[in-house]
Simulated assay, not measured.
Amino acid sequence: MKITRELKTGVIAVLVIALFIWGYNYLKGLNLFDGQIKTYFTEYSNVQGLNTASVVTINGVDVGKVVDIKFNNSPEKRGNLIVEFSVENDFEFSKNSIAKIYSTSLMGGKSLAIVPSYEGETALPGDFLKGEIESDLFSSVSEKLNPLQAKVESVIKSADSLMTGLTDVLDVKSRESLKSSILELNATVTNFKHASANINKLIVNNDEKLTKTLDNATLMTNNLAKLSDTLVNANLGLTIKNIENTVDNLNKVLAGIENGDGTLGKLLTDEEMYINLTNASKELEELLREMKLHPKRFVHFSLFGKKDKGYTPEEEK
């Protein structure tokens, strides 16, 4: 049987088309020779660099590829990205499983990992799995450094404000005054050192005297303790009580005198008695003055027992 040129051309064209289709799907991550392929869907707001032909893994084993990434046309989820991925393995998992985007290297390559769950209804091709994004090293460091960076910037601003304030306050005159104060402080510290050295020297030179003084103080303390014991044994409380009784009696006597009780009280409070005593004192003073000036009026003396003829005013003259 002779094969015509047209047949050869048709066969070659079919093979080229089939090869093209196979190559296109292979580049998309689909191998047409692997039999029936199961595809699932998940959704993200940001795919973090995930692209078609990215590897899909389960527990670290490659089980498929990312087939397609397209925008969600739903008005409620506008801007979200729907990721279609294939699973060439017969491994079964439930609809509660998670499709997580993770970094495969420090260079930022992304892959899709299925975190399987075995509870609930088994996932079928075409089902949607919950999508999550795992923070990579740089994202984690960046998230932790962002608050620290804000705090550092705040501290730097505060330090800058402080330095500006210090510059405004510490003008040339203030800096000179501060320098002078520091020098005076150094001098004070030096003097204190000298004084401390002198005190130490004084203590060393008078160590024996200080020891004696402390011994005397101890002896005095012991004597005071003995005196305290003596006062306690001497029934000091009874003595103080007797003194209190005496003071009470004295207060009663003074109160009686103030109230006019008794002779002394009447003498101090009776005005008439005071006037009488004053008059008697005056009369006694006049009598003594009269006796001093005219003693013959009051004293009569005769050597021979002659009777006194009586006093006449002319005799005084």
Results as ranks from 00 to 15, higher is better:
135 S>L: 14
30 L>E: 08
26 Y>F: 11
66 V>M: 04
248 D>T: 14
20 F>C: 14
196 S>P: 00
151 K>D: 14
23 G>H: 08
289 R>Y: 08
178 L>C: 09
146 N>D: 04
201 K>D: 15
189 V>L: 11
280 A>R: 04
55 V>W: 02
194 H>K: 13
203 I>D: 07
204 V>Q: 13
283 E>F: 08
106 L>P: 00
251 N>R: 12
12 I>K: 13
131 G>S: 07
169 V>N: 08
71 F>R: 13
88 E>L: 08
167 T>I: 11
221 T>G: 08
138 F>S: 08
229 D>W: 01
100 K>D: 07
118 Y>I: 02
190 T>S: 13
8 K>L: 15
164 T>N: 11
73 N>M: 03
149 Q>L: 12
307 K>F: 02
137 L>T: 11
222 N>I: 02
273 M>I: 13
163 M>P: 00
292 K>F: 05
159 A>P: 00
70 K>R: 13
244 E>C: 00
122 T>G: 03
45 S>W: 13
120 G>C: 06
239 T>M: 05
206 N>Y: 11
28 K>R: 15
23 G>I: 05
135 S>F: 09
18 A>F: 11
225 A>M: 08
38 K>R: 14
88 E>V: 09
164 T>E: 12
99 A>W: 03
278 T>Q: 13
202 L>G: 10
135 S>I: 04
146 N>A: 10
38 K>Y: 06
220 M>I: 12
297 R>V: 10
103 S>W: 07
54 S>I: 01
79 G>F: 01
144 K>C: 00
142 S>I: 01
292 K>V: 03
283 E>G: 01
133 I>M: 02
88 E>P: 00
218 T>I: 05
294 H>K: 14
113 A>E: 15
69 I>R: 02
268 L>Q: 11
300 H>L: 04
24 Y>I: 04
309 K>L: 08
60 G>E: 04
